[in-house]
Design a protein around this nucleic acid. Sequence first.
RNA 1: GGACCUGUGGUGCAGCUUGGAGUGCACGCCGGCCUGUCAAGCCGGAGGUCGCGGGUUCAAAUCCCGUCAGGUCCGCCA
Length: 598
Amino acid sequence: MESSSGPSVITNYPTIEPRGLRDRYIGTISEKDLGASVTVCGWVSKVREHGEHLVFIDVRDFSGIVQVVAHSSVELRAEYVVRVKGKVTRRPEGTENSSLDTGQVELTDSEIELLAQADPPPFSLTDRVEVDESTRLRFRYLDLRREKMQSNLRARARINSAIRASMERQGFTELETPLLWTPTPEGAREFVVPSRLNHGSSYVLPQSPQIAKQLLMVSGFDRYYQIARCLRDEDLRADRQFEFTQLDLEASFVSQDDVMEFISDAVMGASRAVGLEHVDPIGRITWRDAIDLYGVDKPDMRFGHTLIDVTDIFADTQVRALSAPCVKALVAPNPSELTRSKLDGLVDRAKALGAKGLLWLRVESKDGELTLDSPVAKFISDAESRELIAKVGAKAGSVILMVADEWQSACQVLGQLRLELGRKLADPNQFTYVWVVDFPLFEGMSEDGSLISAHHPFTMPNQDDFDKLESDPLSVRSQSYDLVLNGWELGSGSIRIHRSDIQARIFSLLGISTEEAKNRFGFLLEAFRFGAPPHGGFAFGIDRLTALLVGEDNIREVIAFPKTQSGSDLMTGAPKPLEKSSWDLLGLSVKPVSKNQI
RNA sequence: GGACCUGUGGUGCAGCUUGGAGUGCACGCCGGCCUGUCAAGCCGGAGGUCGCGGGUUCAAAUCCCGUCAGGUCCGCCA
């Protein structure tokens, strides 16, 4: 993806006082300095030798590049580290370089001091060619020297800074919570840290500071925040690493709307920090509408082509494939590209996504009438055809895609196709945040008949749905809310249950016995007996936010030292086998490692 | 656990469908030339276990099987 039009590498370098070996940062050199002698430090970016009497050396630091002119042969290569003292001189007329911030000037009469030599780098640090990611990760320190990675990570730092400023402004207190936490078997697989002093027992690394921050509310900290590392031993994806960073916050005596305002302020601050001046106010959509219109609970609302309910039209249809509780239609965003074989591919794709099938209908104009061309066209009545075309607003050349199934399945399949076909329509420079609210409290039923939490077991049900908890639990909405940006889930939060009677009802519905609850969360439940304030909070992923704001489609591009999809660090070689003595110290023995794992 | 894509001098690619000598392009590297370039230019050169293993074949970068690594996705991620 192209990087967005944020500010250049660093916005505030003119305010940094140069120290030590230099008296200037390269990016600050301009025509204002004509005649001045400056000393800069950096890496040789490029050497252009025109014989021994004229050599151009591009010297680079994080702030910019400047051309140094030498009139004798130099023993310099790319990535040598140098210190250059030279006179800022206007370039001869006609040789200015407008693509360089310092392109009007150059350093002449220069003294070049070699601070360190460098082997030729394994890949070019200046070309725009995409280098294989495994090579980049093996030499990550060099990859990070490239302008794009400098820009990404500095953007991330500005985002962190803006978030902290927002939190402090809103009266939040930054508190740290333990990394060595206690197992609470629930949700994500935890990273295990065996105890040396207590053989057979283990800490785990926290999936999030969830319980700790609720305890801080009991303690009366009122508003807590932390830019917290979270760790989950689950399979990796483009938007998921083992360890990731969240803005984690919790506040007492607040409503859902209050929490949403706190978070809005933080993400707006973060957006401004990367140079976005115009971000629309954050809209809201209910979970039900999100599924109904976009087929996902994290809608990308930068483009239309929402799903259309056509169940009524086919209530008495002859088309067997359409007799289902719900029929959803999508007007394809790219009808002209949809050849017969592409359409067949879409049918396969829909099936892979779990649909029983996918119907496609091409709208054609015959004698001024719109008709349908499709393998199933002859089974569709004229009335159905007319109503369908009118309802979805199809024109000649349109392609209508339809899935018939249970409501949620039909929506999800078609919603995924909407994304895959329409993604191109989304403006990469547009940032559309949206709150998804009114999530169901339970996401379904497990095999043993107990309900499954949609968020976590401490989520407060919606006040209006309390009396349906036992009678119709699946229809109960919760006081939880997600923040979505351009189709990515940034984070989620909820108002928590602070009353033990309500918590007991929820545990009972979730099939968690008193004994089990005590075992897992005993310390939290005990804490709640001593005066727990009503409270709620939120957490959003800073890796994801940063990636989106700088125009990356992969969070590894905003993490200094990420892991590969199989969880290894190509630079350090981690994870590595441990010596037997290390296992012994922990009171552990391990099965022999098979050869191909070494 | 599963599906798909990729793997060819240091880097990025082409070659693979239809087997015929490690063939080609661009960058980089080394040497030479070159006084206004900035993707510098010109000339010359070095550099390869075609990821690894097995199979088919007279012959494999190419076809088949397996495997490893990287990526995308499904499962998983309260």
